[in-house]
Nucleic acid binder design. Structure first.
Length: 260
DNA sequence: AAGTTACCCAACCGCCCATCT
DNA sequence: CAGATGGGCGGTTGGGTAACT
């Protein structure tokens, strides 16, 4: 009856992940793909909850992740989508390739919210703050709004595959404390480079990749050019079947916006 | 230089829905 | 069909660090 519990909680480690743990997890996912998360820690030799492994992978170790602050385009898109979808971060993240729901949620709470308030816009309702009564949303606007979102998404998509980590915090636009340079993706990238280089599977034919051929995703040994990224995704999907590696956003976007 | 405050974000918590037995 | 779990999701927390006093 039912399923076995996710993890026995006893002897399960919590807190920040070590490089060793990251390597184990990456190694395991690369060899076995994402099977059931409950089994991952045991099979990978980790003293972690399966849930924790899933989170670590989707939010940090996934090879397609972009790093650094959200670009202006991405921010605009997040705001648009939030106006339509509310706090459904996973849905919003699905429209931003390489971004996680957690990342977007954090960025919203720490940056965008403040920006909107500064601009006199209620981050919840997206209405002017001094407005007394929030008018009912005009559904006639829906189509227009969605079109705007689609356009933004499309623009973004075209940037993503060709830009080299365009999210790098150049901060030419952010004028306030958002430009704080605490988020230094460089260190992270070094760490990730180390983790991925230490995995014995980088030249696994499954991935059909090598560090030498890498470009924008060089730190993960992934191809960078538009063509290559598409091919990489196809190989990726082909090799791992229907498993969702958190790349649904790409195929999703292709489905919705790829053809025009 | 030391202490305090503010900020950021990775990770955890708890809930919900789909799925399994 | 009912009960239980897995996986996904949004909300929250706590540690680390930069900025300020």
């Amino acid at each position: 009856m039912g399923r076995q519990p996710c993890c026995d909680k006893l002897g399960v480690k919590k807190g920040p992940w070590t490089v060793e743990e990251d390597k184990k997890l990456v190694n395991f996912i690369l060899t076995h793909g994402q099977c059931c998360w409950r089994a991952v820690p045991k099979l990978a030799g980790l003293r972690r909850c399966g849930k924790s492994c899933r989170l670590r992978w989707t939010n940090y170790l996934r090879p397609d992740l972009k790093r650094g602050l959200l670009t202006e385009d991405e921010e605009r898109l997040v705001i648009d989508l939030h106006a339509r979808l509310g706090n459904r971060w996973s849905k919003i993240a699905a429209r931003l390739p390489g971004r996680t729901d957690n990342e977007i949620k954090n960025h919203w709470n720490t940056h965008i919210k403040k920006k909107l308030i500064k601009m006199g816009i209620d981050p919840l309702t997206h209405e002017p703050l001094n407005k007394e009564v929030t008018p009912q949303h005009n559904h006639d606007d829906d189509h227009h709004d969605l079109e705007v979102i689609h356009e933004e998404s499309q623009k973004l998509c075209s940037h993503v595959s060709s830009s080299d980590n365009s999210s790098a915090p150049t901060d030419q636009n952010s004028s306030t404390d958002e430009s704080r340079s605490t988020s230094d993706p460089g260190d992270d990238d070094l760490l990730m480079n180390y983790i991925w280089s230490e995995t014995i599977f980088l030249d696994d034919p499954l991935w059909n990749i090598s560090p030498e051929t890498s470009g924008s995703y060089g730190n993960f040994g992934l191809p960078s050019s538009e063509d290559n990224s598409d091919r990489w995704l196809l190989d990726y999907e082909k090799d791992f079947g229907d498993e969702d590696f958190g790349l649904g956003c790409f195929s999703d976007m292709d489905m919705n916006y790829g053809t025009q």
